[in-house]
């Protein structure tokens, strides 16, 4: 299933057998989404919270 990234309007390919809670990410900008609902032919996502990375100094 195809859906559009909210941040960069890139195309996100969601596997047809995606399940609730699965994480998908936009190939262009890396924003991660959580699958919150799967209905026939469509899926709704919500942004997954970001975990900050410590890069040292």
């Amino acid at each position: 299933m195809k859906t559009t990234c909210e941040v960069c309007s890139g195309a996100i390919e969601v596997p047809n057998d995606a399940i609730k809670g699965e994480i998908v990410s936009c190939p262009d900008c890396g924003t991660e989404y959580e699958v919150i609902e799967v209905k026939e032919g469509g899926v709704s996502l919500k942004p997954a919270e970001e975990v900050g990375e410590d890069w040292g100094e």
Partner: peptide, 27 residues
Amino acid sequence: EVAMIWKAYRGMYKDEPFVRFIMDKKG
């Protein structure tokens, strides 16, 4: 505005064979 910037890049480079967007939150 991030959305406007993405719109500008996507508009101009949508089908460009040799332009890649290297943007990621992790890695």
